[in-house]
């Protein structure tokens, strides 16, 4: 018995380590390319270790574009979206998951339907809307919609909220609590993992969003990092080594945020573990 458990544990580890190698490949590729010359990056079969290490790629990349300003701009947008996404989506999801009201099914259907039409054909109508509101070249079109909730987030949270036992609500209603109290005292504390997931996704989305800033921002002083990275590429040419160096710097915060964020998953277990 013991032995077979041992064996299966080793198999699991083997699978995970093999998977990790594959998953580390892109990052490793990115980092090694960020310290190579443009030419070395493309050598086939690939060289895995840069020789020589060109650390100057980093200084050159970060000074070629206005990195600090783009970083600040991206941070502003990302932070604003993050807060908005968490508040509005959890409110909406609570309603769809646990409260009954007339028209709920219809509006939930509408919510899902809103994700089913490719963005290419709604881009121009949306743009015209923001232009008539005179908000082109501001961050408002990038932030405000998030504050009214995103369909993906609401649907995701709804699935989680729906899994929380109903007896908890019933008991609270009996004690005279209202929906708000239940939401705030029971639902939110019990759904830390999904909320962290939503937070991470929201962070990632705004951090990497390229199309939104491209379409809505005109002045370079307002640009984001995702746009800045594009500056190393052009029709006929690309400064690959600089692009790789800049990309490495840009994803570093994402990795850190993710690493920190996912640790709270564990905390979730103990809380969800208490069952009504």
């Amino acid at each position: 018995m013991r032995k077979s458990r041992r064996v299966s544990q080793i198999i699991v580890y083997a699978i995970l380590i093999l998977g990790s190698v594959f998953c580390l490949l892109p990052l490793f590729w990115l980092v090694r390319s960020s310290m190579m010359s443009s030419m070395q990056i493309f050598e086939m079969p690939p060289k895995w270790i840069p020789s020589p290490f060109r650390f100057q790629n980093y200084t050159e990349a970060l000074t070629t574009i206005d990195f600090l300003r783009f970083f600040r701009n991206t941070l502003t947008i990302t932070a604003s979206c993050l807060i908005g996404a968490l508040i509005s989506s959890s409110l909406g999801a609570y309603s769809y998951a646990r409260l009954d009201w007339p028209g709920k099914k219809f509006f939930f259907g509408l919510l899902l339907a809103s994700m089913m039409l490719p963005g290419a054909v709604t881009l121009i109508p949306t743009f015209i809307g923001w232009r008539l509101a005179d908000l082109i070249n501001t961050y408002v079109p990038l932030i405000l919609p998030v504050w009214f909730g995103s369909a993906f987030d609401i649907f995701l949270l709804r699935q989680f909220y729906a899994g929380i036992p109903r007896d908890l609500d019933e008991a609270a209603y009996v004690d005279g609590a209202g929906p708000w109290t239940i939401f705030w005292r029971i639902i939110i504390p019990l759904s830390k993992p999904p909320l962290i997931v939503i937070g991470l996704f929201s962070f990632m989305n705004s951090w990497n969003d390229f199309m939104g800033p491209l379409v809505y921002l005109n002045e370079e002083s307002k640009f984001t990092l995702a746009l800045g990275l594009q500056m190393f590429q052009s029709l006929h040419s690309a400064q690959w080594h600089l692009l790789m160096a800049a990309s490495t710097v840009v994803i570093l915060p994402v990795i850190i945020v993710f690493f920190i964020g996912q640790r709270y998953f564990i905390e979730g277990i103990t809380l969800t573990g208490m069952k009504g």
Binding site: L99, L110, L111, T122, F148, W180
Partner: peptide, 26 residues
């Protein structure tokens, strides 16, 4: 009724947002 009113209030921001920013352009 209290629950229904709460439900609508909780969902209202997202309904409003989705209608305005997504359904209308659609």
């Amino acid at each position: 009724r209290r629950i229904a009113v709460a439900g609508i209030l909780f969902a209202l921001p997202s309904i409003f947002g989705i209608m305005l920013f997504v359904i209308l352009p659609m």
